[in-house]
Amino acid sequence: MKDLKQFNIPFVGLKEGSHSFDYQIDKKFFDAFKFDDFLDANVQVDINFVKKSTLLELTFTANGTVNVPCDISNETFNQEIKSTLPLVVKFGEEFNDENEELLILPHGAYEFSVAQYIYEMIVLAVPSKRIHPNVLDGTMQSEALKKLKKLEVFKEEKTEETDPRWDKLKNLLTEKNT
């Protein structure tokens, strides 16, 4: 992913102590990952980078919005994003990123990319069911919601009618339990 070189952190030249890195994430960032669920994005990611003699500690913080379609009405809205992600970077014989909170880099490494961690943090911060705020408060007016309400009324009317033969069977069950 050559488009994401600005997300490489060269840690060899940094002094021990705390450092700060800031990134403005937009739609182009997700396009580089071929992720098209977000119609737009405006997320500020701040990384608190602490270099120690034997390891690196990073704390990612994301604040902003991503524009997504509602799962109920299909209307787009800005979903708020707030997330944090801790990461510890240690050094070992070979690269290992199997643990989500621990990254092991080979001893000769001089930089690493934080793009994948930013991507995962933002994508996982979006709820699995995305509901427009106007749907939640009942003020949304859309054709899809009107159709759903119409079908809901039809479903309720249909369930009220029961066959009297089944009612007799239900009585048998209730009489048996008493």
Rank of each mutant, 00 (worst) to 15 (best):
K2L: 10
L4C: 08
L4E: 10
K5A: 09
F11N: 03
G13W: 00
G13T: 05
L14G: 01
S18I: 11
S18Y: 02
S18D: 05
S20F: 08
F21C: 11
D22S: 09
K28V: 15
F29G: 06
F30N: 12
D31Y: 11
A32T: 11
A32G: 03
F33L: 06
K34M: 13
K34S: 15
F38K: 09
L39S: 10
D40I: 06
N42L: 04
V45D: 08
D46V: 02
F49Q: 05
F49A: 04
K51F: 01
T54A: 13
T54K: 15
T54I: 09
L56W: 00
T59W: 00
F60A: 07
A62I: 00
G64T: 00
T65S: 11
C70M: 01
D71L: 01
I72H: 07
N74F: 15
E75K: 12
F77G: 02
K82M: 00
S83E: 05
S83D: 05
T84M: 01
L85M: 10
L85Q: 07
V88N: 06
V88A: 05
V89R: 03
F95L: 14
N96W: 06
D97W: 02
D97S: 14
D97H: 05
E98N: 14
E98C: 10
N99V: 00
E100T: 01
E101V: 08
E101I: 06
I104V: 10
G108Q: 13
Y110P: 14
E111D: 04
E111G: 01
V114H: 01
V114A: 00
A115T: 05
A115I: 03
A115V: 02
A115R: 04
Q116P: 13
Q116N: 14
Q116F: 07
I118C: 11
M121R: 09
I122F: 03
I122L: 01
A125S: 08
A125C: 01
P127A: 09
P127L: 05
R130L: 07
I131V: 15
H132I: 08
H132M: 07
H132F: 07
H132L: 10
P133I: 03
N134K: 14
G138Q: 03
T139E: 03
M140H: 03
Q141E: 13
S142V: 08
E143T: 15
E143W: 12
A144L: 08
A144E: 12
K147I: 09
K150L: 09
K155R: 13
E156F: 11
E157A: 09
T162M: 14
R165E: 15
D167R: 15
K168W: 14
K168N: 14
L169A: 13
L169K: 10
T174M: 12
T174D: 15
E175Y: 10
K176F: 11
K176T: 09
N177Y: 12
N177P: 15
